[in-house]
Design a binder for these strands. Structure first.
Lengths: 227, 227
DNA sequence: CGTGTCATTTTGTGATCACAAAATCCTGCG
DNA sequence: CGCAGGATTTTGTGATCACAAAATGACACG
């Protein structure tokens, strides 16, 4: 059977590069929500069949994600989700601490009162996920919380860099949460929301940095302990 | 006429993904040395013909570089070198100031005495380029200088981020140097070398930051003045 | 039962094709 | 001479093919 686009479907919105964008979004959210496990190899034909498209757009998307260091092309050409190492973890943590608080500050002037309310809603959902132990939903919502702030900056430079960082550590965090559970997680979201409401640059900077340290830094020992 | 690989050449080293890597290197150095002008569109078939390969590896490379924000895919699918804007310039400058001094610090313990000598050699060549007014050679050597330091860090996270930043501002800087010349350029390379020789973390951090500010920040007014 | 070897399958890569949308060029009209 | 409109070319995209390398599995031998 040929691929989906062969069958003439009445779908009206097959604009330029629509298939590639669909594949890109699928793989990205898959990485961010932990549906791809570090070390597991991803095959072009496999993903293409799974998504019902030809291998061509999948090839381009995987190359793109490899360029963002979200995937790793090994010397034999196989593509896989990179393994996390202690030094890599430290580097991602350092990069996040350098970039994310700064971008949050940049976004602060663009955040209206309605945004604080929206963030509050997301954070409430996050709290529910933590008690339910729904790690996948937590990852998705935590990403939504942070990037709702970052996106308000309108940045086209810092934001893609941070995007790349999240794609790099998210798959690993998923395995960590799967092991230690979500109950022990703490965040500084409420402080961040309060800082946004007050328009306090320094408080927001501190809240984001503390949130990164609490959410990620505390789990750094896990990889040192676990083999 | 078919493409080059059709003719069976005795080339022994046609390993996995060799063509793509060749194309990738060609476009990357082209961007870093200013052979691609901002705003100018890059065509897949054009580049493929120019490099003597099929459009296929070019497609993947351009997608990769678009993922790194070194190229821009417009809504109609055309690919072009992004234009520089004042806000974009400020963001790149801010990101560089955040990341590069930090990575230099990380690299410092791995820099031996021989490295300082090698950097000195590069800096001497740079000084020659400045008096000769050879902007392209300057861009290439300045990149070599900075990344000789950064690469010593062995970083696999921060280094790619900085790589992306350089690909974003290099084409623009080329046009600036073409307009104002290279005579007015100053750098803090000698201070950086001295800091490396002394193993002084803080001095190296300050030297790299000052170098970025002098080499890039001073020219920020150019884009505000020139339309 | 373990192990090395060979056949089979899977997989990435480069190339080419078909198609639609966009851009470009040319022409004819005002 | 300027400019609108249509034909032509260019260009990106998705699909498929051919090929070589790598991974996998089967199987015979020790």
């Amino acid at each position: 059977m040929p691929h989906r686009r062969s069958a003439l479907q009445p779908g009206p919105a097959t604009s330029r590069g629509a298939t590639r964008e669909q594949v890109d979004a699928a793989v990205r959210t898959g990485l961010l929500t932990g549906r791809f496990i570090p070390g597991k190899s991803v095959t072009i034909r496999g993903l293409a069949a799974e998504l019902g498209v030809s291998p061509m757009p999948v090839r381009e998307v995987l190359q793109r994600l490899a360029a963002e260091n979200a995937l790793e092309v090994k010397s034999n050409g196989r593509i896989q989700v990179p393994d996390m190492t202690p030094t890599r973890f430290d580097e991602v943590l350092k990069a996040r601490l350098l970039l994310e608080p700064e971008l949050a500050e940049l976004a602060l002037p663009n955040l209206a009162a309605g945004d604080a309310g929206r963030l509050q809603t997301i954070d409430d959902d996050i709290d529910r996920c933590l008690v339910d132990g729904d790690a996948e939903a937590y990852l998705r919502l935590n990403h939504a919380f942070h990037f709702s702030i970052y996106r308000a900056s309108g940045s086209r430079v810092l934001l893609p860099l941070i995007d790349s960082l999240w794609l790099q550590f998210a798959p690993f965090m998923r395995t960590v949460y799967g092991r230690v559970g979500t109950a022990s997680l703490v965040d500084r979201h409420k402080e961040a929301i309060r800082a946004i409401e007050l328009g306090d640059k320094d408080a927001l900077h501190a809240a984001i940095a503390a949130d990164i340290r609490d959410g990620m830094g505390l789990l750094g020992k896990e990889i040192l302990a676990g083999a």
